[in-house]
Simulated assay, not measured.
Amino acid sequence: MVERRVKYYLGVALAIVGVSVGLYQKADACSPAMECFNEEFLPRYQAPANFEGGYWVPTLEQGAPSIKTLQERFRLTRLDGEKEVDIPVVLEKVEADEGSPSYHNIYFWKPLEALEPGATYRVRGANFCEDPPEPVMEHVFKATEPAPFPEKLGRLRVDQRPDAPLEVDTTSGSCSWEIAADQALVALLPSEEVLPWWELLIFTTYVDGERWEYSRSLAGFGGPVGEGLSGRGRALIYAGCEEDNQGGGLSEGTHTVQMKAHLPGSEVEIWSDSLEVDLSCDDVWPVYRESEEEISIYWKNFVAYLLIVFALGACFPGSVVLGWMYFRKRRRERV
């Protein structure tokens, strides 16, 4: 009887250790957050009164409702003192390539009446993470004087050369990791004719003629619509300097960078001048990582400590029970 109880408590201790280790290992796995996606509106602050329309990224948890439901929950008004005048709009779904590959639910909203220069407008969209879809999200912008569509985007320059490990996405288990990389933050110097349209432009970066987008993690978006992680009219390019090249990126050498911008709801596409950027791993410091032997020792110590803690915790109540049984048996023998 005593031997069976000892085995029972040791079994419980080992089971707790196994579950704890399993949970600890799973914590390192990449689990993209299924949170409600943040709402976005374009334009943010101002736009020429002759613009075709803007973008709306609804607040959604996962799947998008029908276009009819979205249209019913979207509203554009002109602020006239304390009054608001409704402006009829129509919504259209935007393909990912036209907006941002990081977003799957982008909608182009088009006013069916001309906007007034100098007037202030408010856009509202429902929060579809709530049931019913409330409260309403809203944003205010100003219509400026009409402006001609730009024909030239501007020129590029290397704004910064970050000298630090770079966080990139990975499929090795975790959502991201740091790599050694030669980096260049490229910035657009916009032409004068672009400035009135700056907030509406959707930017795309091309390196050596191929579309380029830097991604920091598998669990998250790549930044605001039309901007990416680096900001409006900016792009981070890099060459991975890892031996196994798990960090991806570009190869070492000279690369040609260009930016393209287009206006929502129009066929207007304008390009920047090209810029050549040199990337080299010669002066890049490696990222320190624990060796497999160090990781193995770490796990052995971790499991050993857990065994001691849980074994002691499980054996204590067992010792109390055994002691109680021993004294009970002695009392019966005396009787």
Rank of each mutant, 00 (worst) to 15 (best):
K7Q: 14
G18V: 15
V19M: 10
V21M: 09
G22F: 09
K26V: 14
A29Y: 13
C30G: 01
C30I: 02
A33W: 11
A33Y: 10
F37P: 06
F37Q: 14
E39G: 10
E39H: 05
R44D: 12
P48H: 12
P48Y: 15
F51T: 08
F51K: 14
E52D: 08
W56E: 15
E61P: 14
A64W: 04
T69V: 10
T69C: 07
F74H: 12
F74R: 03
R78G: 05
G81D: 04
K83Y: 00
V89M: 15
V90K: 13
A96N: 03
I106R: 00
Y107T: 03
F108V: 00
K110N: 05
P111H: 11
L115I: 11
E116C: 04
P117H: 09
G118V: 07
G118M: 00
A119K: 01
G125I: 01
N127I: 11
F128A: 13
D131F: 13
V136P: 11
M137S: 09
E138R: 04
E138C: 02
H139E: 00
F141G: 00
P148V: 10
E151M: 07
L153C: 08
L153F: 05
G154D: 15
V158A: 12
P162F: 12
D163V: 12
P165Y: 11
P165L: 15
E167N: 12
V168G: 08
T170Y: 07
T171K: 15
G173A: 07
I179N: 02
A181S: 08
L185E: 06
L185N: 03
E193C: 04
E193L: 12
V194I: 10
V194R: 03
P196Q: 11
P196N: 01
W197E: 11
T204C: 01
D208L: 00
R211C: 14
R216N: 05
L218N: 01
P224I: 13
V225R: 12
E227S: 00
G228R: 03
G228D: 13
L229C: 01
Y238D: 13
C241Y: 15
E242S: 07
D244Y: 02
Q246T: 11
G247Q: 02
G253Y: 03
T254L: 09
T254D: 11
T256N: 04
Q258K: 11
Q258H: 06
Q258T: 13
M259R: 13
K260G: 04
H262S: 10
P264K: 02
G265H: 00
G265I: 02
E267C: 02
E267G: 00
V268D: 01
E269A: 01
I270W: 06
S272V: 09
D273S: 12
L275K: 08
L275Q: 08
D278Y: 00
L279N: 15
L279Y: 14
D282L: 15
D282F: 11
W285E: 10
W285D: 12
W285T: 07
P286C: 04
P286V: 00
V287M: 06
S296A: 13
V303N: 03
L306E: 07
L307F: 14
F310I: 03
A314Y: 05
F316S: 10
P317Y: 04
S319N: 08
S319R: 06
V320Y: 10
G323K: 06
Y326G: 07
R331N: 09
R332P: 00
R334W: 04
R334H: 03
